[in-house]
Design a protein around this nucleic acid. Structure first.
Lengths: 117, 117
DNA sequence: CGGAATCCCCCAAGATACTG
DNA sequence: CAGTATCTTGGGGGATTCCG
């Protein structure tokens, strides 16, 4: 059985993956298709995206809904348990924004705008 | 200049390291010597500890105080900027505790107790 | 005691191609 | 469109040694 030296390690095991917090931050905005997530995260590969999504699903943080149709359609959303992370995710996003403003002269240049619509 | 696709990536760049959140959670409890941190984190190597501490220091999140004496003594503590992460760290710790309770039958078995005194 | 410097291994993660 | 399979690589990170 896995042992933790400090309880926070249990949280990191769930959301500590390289892309997991980013994925969850996007899903806070609402249900997303695989291709939407890929577009929102230009740096991620198909393989990593699938892998991280699977792990989040196994930890009961996100829900995967498959529509049996051609072409395939899969949607991801937060579960109730996933929503229990909302405050943490919001604070992280906010802290990130502040950090950008604090650190750089032209913070608006730091964020690549992606049209969500 | 580094670009982010979403501001939260800036936060992850600061506290996203493998051990950084754990280190910061310990420092919330107060100033710590290097050897204390090592004892609190049995899994970390000297190299990783130093490396993660340096990066946190560079990001102005922690303060490194060197006492010029033999044997050497170095203490680490949160800076004011580091304290701006307190709420996030507290929530993460709390979520970790809840997650352990939710997931396992005997949660108390999951945490290796370490005498802080 | 704290940490810098080496050596080195392994696997996380990228690239590519393929499938239903 | 979503996901799998295979191959490859770089650098994250472990172990060890040396230093003030």
């Amino acid at each position: 059985m896995k042992k933790y030296n400090i309880p926070v390690e249990a949280a990191l095991e769930v959301i500590g993956g390289k892309w997991k917090v980013v994925i969850l931050c996007h899903l806070i905005k609402g249900k997303k298709r695989t291709s939407e997530l890929k577009r929102l995260m230009p740096g991620i590969t198909q393989k990593m995206l699938t892998q991280q999504l699977r792990e989040l699903e196994e930890d009961n943080v996100i829900l995967r809904e498959v529509y049996n149709q051609v072409p395939p359609k899969v949607e991801y959303s937060l579960t109730d348990y996933g929503w229990s992370l909302k405050q943490i995710l919001d604070l992280l996003c906010h802290w990130g924004e502040q950090h950008i403003e604090k650190t750089f002269d032209n913070p608006e240049d730091m964020v690549v705008q992606i049209n969500e619509e």
